[in-house]
Design a protein around this nucleic acid. Sequence first.
DNA 1: TTAACTTAGTATACATTAGTAACTAACACT
DNA 2: AGTGTTAGTTACTAATGTATACTAAGTTAA
Lengths: 128, 128
Amino acid sequence: MAADKAQKRRIFVNDENCPIRNVVSHIGDKWSLLILFSLVDGADRFNSIKARVEGISQRMLTQTLRDLERDGYVNRTVYPEVPVKVVYELTDLGRGLAKPAWGLVSWANQHLEQVKNARAQYDQESES
Amino acid sequence: MAADKAQKRRIFVNDENCPIRNVVSHIGDKWSLLILFSLVDGADRFNSIKARVEGISQRMLTQTLRDLERDGYVNRTVYPEVPVKVVYELTDLGRGLAKPAWGLVSWANQHLEQVKNARAQYDQESES
DNA sequence: TTAACTTAGTATACATTAGTAACTAACACT
DNA sequence: AGTGTTAGTTACTAATGTATACTAAGTTAA
């Protein structure tokens, strides 16, 4: 009955309406945010994105773009020229997502040193 | 030479100072944010976190807590009672991270329906 | 005319990471 | 001696990511 300790929430992960499971964990993969930010500057073509997002393989770029398209963040337009041209651009939803995502990245940028220091200290202490 | 089209950034993923690689992708895994939010309410013990974060296994809880501790987001304190008691709590850095992370989650919460609709439409259209 | 080049992908095999189920250590209680 | 507790670890399997080679549908060059 003592109310001096706040009731702690349960966190329902398997709820099909869990936003972390449905949205955050999707864009938390290795490449989604990088591609999203690469399109904030404007629409771009497959190979141009590939050149700008350093280290991504064709397979992962294709796959991640498909996932972003499926979730409604990205539009895919095919121009049946020769050779074929495929242009990707952010939707309104994608631009909306980019804002809070950028908030997180900019926090990360400001606190990168602290995190790296913590990590180095932890690693040093755990050496036997 | 034409400056009517903005120069597009390259995105250097393999840069060891890339905040997305160093911070965002670490907390973008399946459990980190869930554990982080479960500790926003206050310090908690291993098994209590496990009970609150639905579906997490002991191994993943241990591993994720270690990663969060290593990056400086979480403090781990062992009380050598019997049975042993281990309490985890957020550091200032962890509480700082929780804010922009919460911004992202709350965007996700508000736009969950749009994402789910986009997904359903995409899946329907791609049925042959 | 056939060989080389382009873009936007697939296919295959392999490596890495995440996740599960069962087990352990160090006691305390009965 | 046997059971229960907490906080893990170990060994295994499933999912995700990577590297490399290959394809389609043309255009241009030799």
